[in-house]
Design a protein around this nucleic acid. Structure first.
Lengths: 197, 197, 197, 197
DNA sequence: CATGAATGAGCATTCATTCAT
DNA sequence: TATGAATGAATGCTCATTCAT
């Protein structure tokens, strides 16, 4: 009698599928995502994909939800110290395409943001993540050294900061070539402007 | 002498097609653009569309080129007076979704920017328009009242300004709801920060 | 106990599709074969055709492979007796349009041969079947009564015999009208010539 | 006043179009012939093609008529001497793909023959050319040295000869590779068989 | 003679989805 | 949990043809 061993390689299929979808999105755009492509990239049959995600929309939404979760996790994971400037830099650097990993993340976010512009259900998710990250940035700003910044003021600055960083990221990936130094310099200058009094 | 009656409906088919494509893009996103949809929206046959644009890519690229042309025209068309703050405000307000017309333009730009992230030929166009508009903003900043701002410094600030405005616009349309006042306030604050010394 | 009713209509879809393709080819030529036509003739949806044959090329190649298989089978199926003349007649008659069935086969072969002239992958299949049938004919000739015909000589004669028969068949179907008697007479005369010493 | 000189390069457009069609046929097969392709290959507009040939069928038929004319011309052009064997060889060699020119001609004839199998109007043309060339071959055979061959007998042999040669040519181009020597040998052997008594 | 605009049918192919196993 | 058969709509694109110039 043959014992069923096999604990091997048992990553949840759902996760494999989500990763496959995000890979395709980063490389070829969200409009190139199809059930077929995802199945092929994940190495499973089409039927299997649709066993886990009954419709394509469900699959895309699940993937975006996962992206949102990751961003939240990443922003929350940035260790905050006493130095406000450093804190802000740390948080915002996570949102710029400063290496291949972050470039990939940016491409994914841009793809979903563009789709959210015409897909209400995705717009809701997008609004949520913008609020969350904005709040995190506002918190970092509010703790600024010389006299506390009023919360409303901090939130307003945070919105501008987030917009500027996302704008820089968008310009970087959509113009096809960018350089780390220019992004870093722009971020420094931006933070100086934000914290100037 | 023959009176010039009926200039009516003599618009070039190519322009009608481009407008149809941009309409669909603004309303449903670039991924919903198909030769059939464009033909239907323009009120011509499928064959006619492809008589003018042999491939879909050619059609999309032509439409983006037209968008780029319009942006350039609009930015160049903003009358610049002696007041730097006012000038900057005028230029940058053109890029925010402050009314339906501009919201439509923003949606179109966002759609193309997202596609440019995975389509090198569009990325080239995007890089061009970013450089041009950035230069225009830098010019406005450089003319700032108290002592000229060094050109390189002006360009750096312009890049941040453009990124921030495009980021605000992206956040607005991708989160599904926004308000004019918040955008206007953010823009004022941004310009203050840029011109602070 | 469940009686085995209904083996009816359980023919593999792939076979039904191949037959449909060959029907169309025989009646209207290979250039009239389209996925749509095959689907319609087979009574299935377009999607089903392409579920079994991912591309049209794959479908055509599969059909030609089936044709080749049938020819081999048919030639091999001719019972060979001691009389060489009779043997040769039996084999070669299979290749002439002497009745509707064989006329259909000839039309199909001619269509594929013509396409093979500009399609290398089909040319390979064609070369294979020519070699096989040639070998079978050579075998029949070699066994000729008065002293064995040298193998190389037999092969050379076989090539001519096969060419002549295929040429007669081609002329028959391509000139639109032919008669059984003329073909039979020509075949007799040909075989006499081949076996004359 | 500028005199319209220009006798230059004034080959009839119709001929240019026919050649373009035959080029495409020889290289890619008759099924790849389209009005567009012919126009492109001839360097004229689609409209021009259809000015000369109102329908595609008319164009194809005209091209086949031209092919037939050329074959007749070529066969008639073979100088016939007193040596029957030599005469037959000369005529039949014209029909084998012994060099690139003749290979091209064969490919064209094969393409048209295949189409004629399902297109009655082409079948008529094909029947005509077969009769004509057959008659020419019969004439060469009839003049055979030792005692005249009866006309009916000569015609029967001619049909076999023509079939064999066309069959050899078909096998050569449809199997993708052939060699001059094998074809020449086969032809010699065939003629020996035909003239044997 | 030659062109280009316009058309509508047809092409192979990809698509998301349903269903039985 | 996973698969493959089947479907029908939609995709971008090529086609032959008509017509006005």
């Amino acid at each position: 009698m043959v014992p069923r061993v096999e604990p091997l390689s048992t990553r949840p299929t759902k996760d494999v599928l989500t990763d496959a979808l995000l890979d395709i999105t980063a490389q070829h755009g969200l409009e190139q995502v199809s059930v077929r492509q995802v199945a092929a990239a994940a190495g499973v049959s089409i039927g299997t994909v649709q066993h886990h995600f009954p419709t394509k929309d469900a699959m895309v939404t699940a993937a975006f939800t996962e992206v949102v979760r990751r961003i939240r996790e990443r922003v929350a994971g940035v260790a905050l110290g006493p130095d406000v400037h450093r804190n802000l830099t740390a948080v915002l650097r996570e949102l710029l395409p400063l290496d291949e990993r972050r470039a990939t993340e940016v491409r994914i976010q841009v793809a979903f943001a563009a789709r959210a512009a015409t897909t209400p259900s995705l717009a809701t998710l997008q609004a949520g993540i913008l609020a969350d990250v904005g709040e995190a940035i506002a918190g970092a700003i509010a703790r600024a050294g010389r006299g506390a910044v009023p919360p409303e003021e901090a939130r307003a600055l945070a919105r501008i900061a987030l917009a500027a960083v996302d704008g820089l990221a968008l310009h970087a990936v959509s113009s096809g070539s960018w350089d780390r130094t220019a992004l870093t310099d722009a971020l420094d200058r931006l933070i100086d402007m934000l914290l100037a009094r």
